[in-house]
Design a protein around this nucleic acid. Structure first.
Lengths: 225, 225
DNA sequence: ATCATTTTGTAACAATTGATACATTTTGCC
DNA sequence: GGCAAAATGTATCAATTGTTACAAAATGAT
C-alpha cells in the first residue's frame, strides 16, 4: 500500500528506518487516497482533520481570492507533507485549496492518529517539532525585518546581522535586486539608500565587498525606531 | 517543591489534574531554580536546553542591541512558560536576555525530559502543539497583512476577511489605534484611508458598525497589487 | 447629568518611497 | 579581448504615508 522507501525520505519520517516506519503505521488508522489530475484534494477554508503526505505525483496550493480567481501558490512534490503547520492551533483550516497536478497518491492520517504516532516515536516527534518551530522562527525573523519602517533601518539591521561579531568587511552574496525583494522595496530605492549611507560614511561598497565604517552610527539608526 | 495548583494553570498544563501533573513530573528529571531580584535567568544567544515555567514571581525579557543598551521586551508572570517557541528548530537560542523582576522561582525541564512528558500525556502534547501552532499562525497572518503595500489594501483585506461569507455588516471590536498597530501604520493615516473609502462609497461606518457597500470594489483593490 | 478621558475626524506639511528612464559598470561567455 | 546581458548608479517626478496639531464626538465613571 505505502511505499515506505519514499515515506522515510519525507522531512517528517527522516531518520526512521523503513521497518520502524512500517511498524508505526501498522498501529494506527490511515488512508491512501488517489487523485486524478486536477482533482481537488482539499478545499480552502476546510478544517484540517488529517495530515497529508504526498506519496507520488505532485499537488499545488491555490488560493481563491474574493472575486473567485485562482492564484497558484506553490507546488508540493512527493514526499513532502501538506499544511503540516495547520494541523493544530486555533485556526486549523486550510489556507489554500489544494489540487492534484497529475495522478497522485496522498497518505492521510487523522489528527488523533498522528498524535499517537508522535507519542510512539521520539524521532518523529522531534522532526515535527523542529519542522514547525523552524517555520515559526523563519516567520518571526522575516517579521522582524518588516517591522523596520525605513529602508535605511532595514539595511542597517541586515548589515549588522550579516557582519555579526566578525570583521567589519564581508562579501555580499545577493544582488541588489534580491536584497530589494527581501526588504520588500524597489531596487532603485535600495540603491539610493546604499548611496546615501556611503556618502554619510557609514559604509563602503566596492563591487561585492561591504565594509562597515561606523557601526555605532548604524546602531543609532535602529535605536531611534 | 512545585506548587502544582499553580502549574496546572499554565497554558501548557491546562486541563491536566494536579494529581496527574504530579505523577508526570515524578517520572522525569527537573529543577526548581530560585532567582533573586535582577538575577539573570538566561543570557540572550544562549542555547535553549530547558523549558522554563515561571512558578512564582515574574521575569522580564530584555534585548541587548548592537551597542549594548538593553531594551525591555515583555514581562512574564507565573505561571507562564518562557521561550516555549524556541525549544526546537534550527535556531534554538534565546532571542532575549531574561532577568528576574523580583525574587522568583522557575521550573526548568531539560528538552529531552520535556519530550518524554509530551509522549506520556496527550493533553500536554496537544497544549504544546496548539501553543506553538497558534503562534506560527498569528505570525503568518501578520506577515500576510504586511505584504499588502498600501493601507487601502490592508483595510480591504481585513474587512473582507472579517465579513467572510456573513452579512455585509459587522461590529468592529478594535479601536482605530489597535487596527493601526495591526496594520503597522499610524492612526491618522488609517483614519484618512477609512474616510476615503467612505467617500468612494466602498464602505460605511457608523460608530462601531462597518457596512461593506461594494464588495466588488474592495476586491479590485486587492487584485491590482 | 456632568466632567474627564478616550476615541475619532481632519488638515497642512514634510519625508520617504515608488515609478520610470537612462547611462554606466560589471559579469559571463565565446 | 570583445561582446551581450545583467547589475548598478542616478535623476526626476508622482504618490503614499508619517508627523503634528487641534477640534469634535463618544465613552465611562462619579
Amino acid at each position: 500500500m505505502i511505499d515506505y522507501s519514499i515515506l522515510v525520505k519525507s522531512p517528517l519520517f527522516n531518520g526512521i528506518s523503513e521497518e520502524e516506519c512500517m511498524t508505526l503505521c501498522s498501529k494506527i488508522h490511515y488512508q491512501v487516497r488517489k487523485f486524478e489530475k486536477d482533482a481537488i484534494v482539499v478545499q480552502g477554508g476546510e478544517e484540517v482533520t488529517n495530515l497529508f503526505v504526498v506519496l507520488s505525483g505532485s499537488v499545488r496550493g491555490e488560493m481563491i481570492d474574493y472575486s473567485g480567481k485562482t492564484v497558484k501558490i506553490e507546488d508540493i512534490e512527493a514526499p513532502r507533507p501538506l499544511a503540516a503547520a495547520f494541523l493544530f492551533g486555533k485556526e486549523n483550516k486550510f489556507p489554500v485549496t489544494v489540487t492534484a497536478n497529475k495522478k497522485s497518491e496522498l497518505l492521510a492520517i487523522p489528527v488523533v492518529e498522528f498524535l499517537k504516532l508522535l507519542q510512539l516515536n521520539t524521532r518523529l516527534l522531534r522532526n515535527y517539532l523542529n519542522n514547525i518551530s523552524t517555520r515559526a522562527q523563519f516567520l518571526s525573523q522575516k517579521l522582524h525585518f518588516l517591522s523596520f519602517k525605513t529602508i535605511k533601518e532595514k539595511v542597517a539591521h541586515f548589515l549588522l546581522q550579516q557582519a555579526g561579531d566578525r570583521f567589519h568587511s564581508f562579501e555580499l552574496k545577493n544582488t541588489q535586486q534580491q536584497l530589494a525583494e527581501l526588504f520588500g522595496v524597489t531596487r532603485p530605492s535600495l540603491a539610493r539608500v546604499l548611496g546615501e549611507m556611503q556618502s554619510e560614511n557609514l559604509i563602503k561598497i566596492e563591487k561585492k565587498t561591504v565594509t562597515l565604517l561606523d557601526k555605532e552610527g548604524l546602531n543609532s539608526l535602529l535605536e531611534n525606531g
